[in-house]
Design a protein around this nucleic acid. Structure first.
Lengths: 154, 154
DNA sequence: CGCTGATGTATTAGCGCTGTTATATTAGCG
DNA sequence: CGCTAATATAACAGCGCTAATACATCAGCG
């Protein structure tokens, strides 16, 4: 028996793998799943700096800097010095922009699939996650575990 | 907006972090969360080979080999050549064995906390995961996404 | 009897995902 | 000039995986 949320972890891993398959089926090369959201975001907002993009995606600027470096390597974005020469404007290349319609379609389809799934089962996963989050705000997992912790003598 | 299961991912990450806090609160050093299950398993089964342990924990033998190497570095297990010189018997050291009662207590407490959580919310997470799994066996995520995929013209 | 090739086991290199901290660079600003 | 802000990069942490390698074993064959 693995840890209590191993099945949850496995589910996530499997879902991610299936997204990759959707990409592969479309013959999309060199686009890792983590690339999709930055690209979609940039398509909507126009050029952003690293920090703006990071805030927008709720990641650290360091993490985004690394992702953007990878995107640049794949020729999906450019990074031009901005009006303030400290900042750089991250913008889509033609190739990056061309990808966005599909990525967005996949994004919407995935959301729809999740919604379908939630409606199909008695215990909707999305609802469960939200409820657990709120329950943990009331009392943390650490506290809950502590309350149940019975240590054997010795 | 992150990907559809970003919140799920975040939840997992947070839960793992809280387990670490429980360890830290007990002053346990050098024991990463991934160490717990191999140690507990070995305590129940006695010495196992890498492959047996891997099967037992449903991990790749490669992953377990690496974990065992880390366990050895921490002085928690030994790895002696077995009767068949192809294999090695992984066994607990004194230090490893001494840890097991606490790790098991934490394990039980965590399960109890999860059960409590499941009972506390309208949509039990554990149930949701199982139901989603079964739903995906009926129709894969890949298919579901494909069915909802509407690509824009161009 | 000894070699050969198939199989099983373990390790290791390299990669994926996530993130962090620390440091260097450069620019803006008072 | 010195402080602050933005970015980039290196090194590291965690989790896992596959594929290649090394080695042992064993069956079969000449």
């Amino acid at each position: 028996m693995p840890d209590p949320w191993a099945s949850l972890h496995q589910l996530l891993t499997d879902l991610d793998a299936e997204i990759e398959e959707v990409y592969a089926a479309r013959g999309i090369q060199g686009v890792r799943p983590r690339f999709a959201y930055p690209l979609i975001r940039l398509a909507h907002t126009g050029p952003l700096t690293i920090r703006e993009l990071a805030r927008s995606l709720r990641r650290s600027h360091s993490a985004i800097s690394q992702t953007v470096a990878a995107l640049r390597t794949e020729g999906l974005v450019t990074s031009e010095p901005g009006p303030d020469a400290r900042t750089r404007r991250i913008d889509l290349t033609e190739r990056g922009r061309a990808l966005v319609p599909f990525l967005e379609a996949e994004w919407r389809a995935t959301h729809a699939a999740v919604a379908e799934l939630d409606a199909e089962v008695p215990h909707a996963l999305t609802a469960a996650v939200g409820e657990v989050r709120r329950a943990l705000e009331r009392r943390s997992m650490r506290q809950r575990i502590g309350d149940h912790l019975v240590e054997p003598p010795g």
